[in-house]
């Protein structure tokens, strides 16, 4: 069962992704509300995949991504973005994110994206 860390400042979003993933046999090993917590959780849980929201207070997704990639160059991170954040997604891909999903997302999109990078 793939182990996932879900990072988003909105509890609603975390829940949405969690429900989708649980429906498909993924294991949620942790959740984080901002970039700082995300990095800490990554070290604690060593997940197989991270879903990382771009817009967060304190430390945003991009910076968290860079930090995680430094810790683990093989990290598999999927950025969660909204429409209109093309530049940040680009930079994320350039910084090592494996893929991205766009809000509002459909369950099958999310699952396909995660399956692809596992």
């Amino acid at each position: 069962m793939p182990r996932v860390l879900i990072v988003d400042d909105a509890a609603f979003m975390r829940m949405a992704i969690k429900n989708m993933l649980l429906n498909h046999g993924y294991e949620i090993v942790g959740e984080a509300e901002n970039g700082v917590a995300a990095v800490k959780k990554y070290l604690e849980c060593k997940p197989d995949i991270v879903t990382l929201d771009i817009t967060m207070p304190e430390m945003n997704g991009l910076e968290a991504l860079k930090a995680i990639m430094k810790i683990d160059p093989n990290a598999k991170v999927v950025m969660v973005s909204a429409m209109g954040q093309e530049n940040m997604v680009k930079e994320a891909i350039l910084s090592g994110a494996k893929s991205f999903i766009i809000k509002p997302f459909k369950e099958d999109h999310v699952i396909k994206t995660l399956q692809k990078i596992l």
């Binding site: 909105a10 509890a11 609603f12 829940m15 949405a16 429900n19 989708m20 429906n23 459909k106 369950e107 099958d108």
Partner: peptide, 19 residues
Amino acid sequence: MADDFLNDSMLEVYIFETS
């Protein structure tokens, strides 16, 4: 299938957070 994840507790969280 796309909306499988939507349920009552999602709604609760949505309402709570948005409020």
